[in-house]
Simulated scan of single mutants.
Amino acid sequence: MIRINLLKPEIKEVREPAAGLPKVAKERKKTSLGTIIFLVLLVSLAGYYFYQNWEMQKEKQLLEQAQQEKNQLQYVVAKLEEVKNQKAQLELKINLIRQLKSNQDIAVKIMDEINRRLPDYVWLKDASYDGQTLKLKGEAISNNLIADFITNIERSETFGQVDLKDSTQKSQGGAVFLEFNLTVPVKKPQLQPIEQPKPKAAPQATRRR
């Protein structure tokens, strides 16, 4: 049996692709590639920034640690210098005490030597010793006695040449006297020790017969 199709055949329209479509796709691909490259660069820059920041923080910590060690070292050096100064001051005080004690002992011996050579009617009012020179201030009833006193001093091997600074006549209560000032160089501070008075022996008891 033969069938005859009396309907009009369907005509399918075939649309051709638009001419600009490949260009849009290419542009999108370029945009995506540029975005990826930008993101990669951004991540790289961020990583480099954080790495540099970490390095800077590390260097900062090292500098702070070095500064702390330097401060501690300066503190130790300052303490050592302070201890050194205290030691020097202590040694200076000890030497000064020894010197004063030595000068005191020498001054006592010098005054004993002077008193031994002091003539009658000559009195000492003041005396001072600075380690090299002895200064004397006294009174006498005549210039001859002052001259005798100077001669007695110069005969000693302990003293040098006496310098008579002045001799002034004064009066008090009707009495006339001379006030004088002498300077005496000390040549030998090591003098003979002062003789201490010997204790008297106790009297022996006598037996009664």
Rank of each mutant, 00 (worst) to 15 (best):
I4T: 07
L6R: 14
K8F: 11
I11Q: 04
V14F: 06
A18D: 07
A19V: 10
P22M: 08
A25G: 05
A25V: 10
K26M: 07
R28K: 13
K30H: 05
T31H: 03
L33F: 01
L33A: 10
I36P: 03
I37R: 05
L39G: 08
L42G: 15
S44H: 05
L45K: 00
L45G: 04
A46Y: 06
G47R: 02
Y48V: 13
W54T: 15
E55F: 11
M56P: 01
K58A: 14
E59L: 15
A66N: 13
N71S: 08
N71I: 06
V77M: 02
A78K: 09
K79T: 11
K79F: 07
E82H: 08
N85R: 12
N85S: 14
N85T: 12
Q86W: 09
E91H: 10
K93P: 03
K93Q: 15
L96H: 04
R98T: 12
L100M: 15
L100K: 10
K101Q: 13
N103S: 01
I106G: 00
V108D: 01
V108K: 00
I110K: 00
E113D: 15
N115S: 10
R117S: 14
R117V: 11
P119L: 03
V122S: 02
V122M: 03
V122Q: 04
K125N: 13
K125A: 11
D126C: 04
A127M: 05
S128L: 06
G131Q: 03
Q132N: 13
Q132F: 08
Q132H: 12
K135Y: 10
L136V: 02
G138I: 05
A140H: 01
S142G: 07
N143F: 14
N143K: 07
L145W: 07
L145N: 04
A147W: 03
F149W: 00
T151Q: 10
T151C: 00
E154S: 07
E154K: 03
S156D: 04
Q161L: 14
Q169S: 13
S171M: 05
G173T: 08
G174Q: 14
V176S: 11
T183V: 13
V186H: 02
K187P: 00
P189V: 07
P193W: 02
I194Y: 12
Q196P: 01
K198M: 06
A202D: 10
A202I: 10
Q204S: 12
R207Q: 06
R208M: 13
